[in-house]
Computed example of a mutant assay.
Amino acid sequence: MALAWWEAAARLGVALVLGAAIGFERQWRSRMAGLRTNALVCTGAALFVMFSVLIPNDNSPTRIASYVVSGVGFLGAGVIIRDRGNLRGLNTAATIWGTAGVGVMSGGGYFTVAVLGAAAIVLANVLLRSVARQVDRRETGRTNNPRHYRFRAVGRDADEAHIRALVVQSLTAGGFSLHALDSADIDNTGKVAVTARLTGHGQDSGQLEQAVSRLSLEPGISSVSWRVGNDEEDL
């Protein structure tokens, strides 16, 4: 199959314009992959598909498209940054991935689908941004509410001082506010129960589980547990 020069130019032109339109929104918001990156990704994807169209006996357009998806996946991974345990750049990587899809459609001559795809990507980045912020604000307000916990460790009576020190160290390292630390002998067992009353913010179950895991490895401690309450009186 031979493409006329005007048809090839039209496919590349549509890919370039749509990729630039997607990239403009990213550039406007000062994201890493902006105008030129998305325009080049879209145009490059169109070129690969056009190559398969020009040589139909040797290369299937669908197979070339799958290679484009794999290659763009590596490019998108390059813009993902881990910052203090959080991942940044996922939205930009997804945008690049979608831009490659627009380029594949443009290179294949499916202009209507390409335009609709580009419009969907831009609208998702623009309109859903405010929705995502509302959800984040709601979650932030929820996690800022203080939550009260009771942490209990049981071990040998002779190791009481050591157990108290381990409990304090484990809980304060997790960012909790320690309000009280009590010890009580368990009758006729030779064991002591150390109970800590503390306050945290948000979803602290992960830190508490880590504290449980650490203390459970101590030879003098036989059991460790925690629970959450509505307020300090419940503890």
Results as ranks from 00 to 15, higher is better:
Asp231Leu: 00
Gly44Ser: 15
Arg82Gly: 05
Glu218Cys: 06
Leu12Asp: 05
Ala94Gly: 14
Asp234Gln: 15
Gly174Trp: 00
Gly229Gln: 12
Phe74Leu: 10
Gln169Gly: 11
Ala21Leu: 15
Gly108Glu: 04
Ser177Tyr: 10
Leu116Met: 14
Tyr110Cys: 01
Asp231Pro: 09
Ala4Trp: 05
Ala93Glu: 09
Arg137Gln: 14
Phe74Cys: 10
Ala158Lys: 02
Arg88Asn: 14
Leu127Val: 15
Leu181Arg: 05
Gly44Asp: 10
Ala118Val: 06
Ala119Pro: 01
Gly103Val: 01
Val113Asp: 14
Val126Trp: 07
Gly108Ile: 00
Asn145Leu: 14
Val69Arg: 10
Asn86Pro: 03
Arg26Glu: 02
Gly206His: 08
Thr199Asn: 02
Arg133Asn: 09
Ala114Asn: 05
Arg84Phe: 11
Cys42Ser: 13
Ala94Glu: 05
Asp58His: 12
Leu87Lys: 00
Pro61His: 08
Ala10Ser: 14
Gly202Arg: 07
Leu198Glu: 04
Glu233Trp: 06
Ala184Thr: 12
Ile221Glu: 08
Tyr110Asn: 08
Glu160Pro: 00
Ser70Val: 08
Tyr110Phe: 14
Met50Val: 06
Gly34Asn: 02
Ser52Leu: 12
Trp5Glu: 09
Ser222Val: 14
Arg36Gly: 01
Ala173Cys: 02
Arg156Thr: 13
Ala100Trp: 00
Arg26His: 04
Ser222Gln: 12
Leu178Lys: 05
Gly200Asn: 07
Leu217Cys: 04
Pro61Gln: 09
Val131Pro: 01
Phe48Tyr: 11
Trp5Arg: 00
His162Pro: 00
Arg26Tyr: 04
Gly76Ser: 08
Gly206Glu: 09
Arg147Asn: 10
Ala10His: 02
Ile96Asn: 01
Phe176Asn: 05
Val194Leu: 06
Thr140Glu: 14
Leu235Cys: 04
Asn144Val: 07
Val154Ile: 15
Ile186Met: 04
Ser60Glu: 15
Arg129Tyr: 15
His148Glu: 10
Phe176Val: 04
